[in-house]
Simulated scan of single mutants.
Amino acid sequence: MPEPIYPTSDLRIRLEVLDRLRHAPGLDASDISVTSDHGEVRLSGVVWSEADCRQAQEVAAAVLGVKRVRNGLLVQAKSGSVGTGLLAP
């Protein structure tokens, strides 16, 4: 991804990542937190599947100004499904 002419502020990056996560098709981002420091985005919180975990990372990485994504999301099976508990991504 090309670097922007002017650096994108961390606040703008954080808000853009949150907005894109909120509007990503099929992704429940209600339990995802986002921080940004010098273009390095950190995702934390809980998602419901490995696919959601990967999708959240891809969405964040596609935002202009993001240099790196640290994915700290935990995958938790929905209650009533087979296998419960938290798994590291």
Rank of each mutant, 00 (worst) to 15 (best):
M1P: 00
M1C: 09
E3D: 13
P4H: 03
P7W: 09
T8E: 08
L11E: 12
E16Y: 00
V17P: 00
L18Y: 07
D19K: 13
D19M: 10
L21E: 01
H23A: 01
H23N: 07
A24S: 13
A24R: 13
A24M: 10
G26M: 07
L27T: 03
L27S: 08
D28V: 02
A29H: 11
A29R: 04
D31P: 06
S33C: 09
S36I: 06
G39I: 05
G39Q: 05
E40A: 13
E40Y: 12
V41H: 13
V41Y: 11
S44K: 00
S44V: 01
S44C: 05
G45P: 02
V46Q: 08
V47Y: 13
S49A: 11
S49D: 08
Q55Y: 12
Q57P: 04
Q57I: 00
V59H: 08
A61K: 14
L64V: 11
L64W: 14
V66D: 02
V66Y: 13
K67S: 13
K67E: 09
A77N: 05
A77T: 11
A77D: 04
K78Y: 03
K78V: 07
S79D: 14
S81P: 01
S81V: 12
S81A: 15
V82C: 06
L87Y: 02
A88L: 03
A88T: 05
A88E: 02
A88I: 04
